[in-house]
Computed example of a mutant assay.
Amino acid sequence: MSIEQRRQAIRELTETGSHFGGPFYIGPDGKRQWGLTTIWQHVFGDSLKYPRPRYGFPIVADPKCFNWLPVEGAESGVEHKFLGALSERGVWVEMLRLQAGTTWSSTDPKARRITTVLAGSGECDREQISYLSTIQADAGETLGLTAGPEPLELLLIGMAPIVLPATESDQYDLEEFPEEDREPAGQQAD
């Protein structure tokens, strides 16, 4: 859902005499529900489902333990560290490094890419970028980068389009929010 859809839902929900307290929606009758679930139901008319964890423990990739490799098809001075891909959607994480003064552009016909500057400075499509600048390039959109006077290092997260399965998994929590992530018993929302 878009930010505007979310804002509109909040406005409409609170017009009924209800309010949001912390992460909860408190209805006119005083009933509490996880806020995001309420907003989702208001916008889409259907329950939000939370998937069960897919991995038994956190996955920690240490970029220092990966090698810089040339990016296929790019000019000299463009390297990457492929840190991994996850799930059936193929979400991937990699680091990119452009040597000083190097220009590189790429287009992915299917995936949205979120890129954040970790070191150095430069330009993205003639706009200045520096530490923690973040760029979103949608599917089919060209991402054009130029490193400044020092190497430009970036973190890139690629997100393939959402494809709905022909048969939905029965491994989703059908609760409004997973029990283990709920607020401790006895705590009240503000």
Rank of each mutant, 00 (worst) to 15 (best):
S133L: 09
K64N: 13
L86N: 02
Y172V: 14
T134F: 02
A100R: 00
L152K: 05
E150A: 14
A139T: 12
R89V: 09
F177R: 09
P161F: 03
E79F: 11
Y25Q: 06
Y172G: 13
G73Y: 00
E88Q: 09
V163T: 15
I114N: 05
G45F: 06
L98F: 04
T116E: 01
S121R: 12
D173I: 08
D62T: 08
D29C: 03
R97M: 11
P58K: 05
L174K: 03
I157G: 06
P149F: 01
G120V: 01
G73I: 01
G27Q: 07
S47A: 15
A139D: 04
T146I: 02
R7I: 01
G56C: 01
A119Y: 12
T116N: 01
A160R: 13
E141A: 13
E168V: 11
I135Q: 04
L132M: 14
G17N: 07
T107W: 09
G17V: 00
V71M: 12
Q8D: 10
F44H: 13
E79A: 08
L132K: 15
I129G: 02
W40N: 13
G27Y: 06
I10A: 07
E150M: 06
G30Q: 11
R112L: 15
V60L: 13
W104F: 15
E4T: 15
Y25A: 05
I162A: 11
K64E: 14
L98V: 07
P109H: 00
G73K: 03
A119F: 09
C124N: 10
P109I: 05
Q187K: 06
Q33H: 07
P161I: 13
H19I: 03
L48S: 10
I26A: 05
W68N: 12
E94N: 04
R52S: 12
E183L: 12
R52G: 06
P184F: 07
D29H: 04
T16G: 01
G27T: 02
Q187P: 00
L152E: 05
G140E: 03
A139G: 01
R32N: 06
F44E: 11
R7F: 03
F82L: 07
L96R: 14
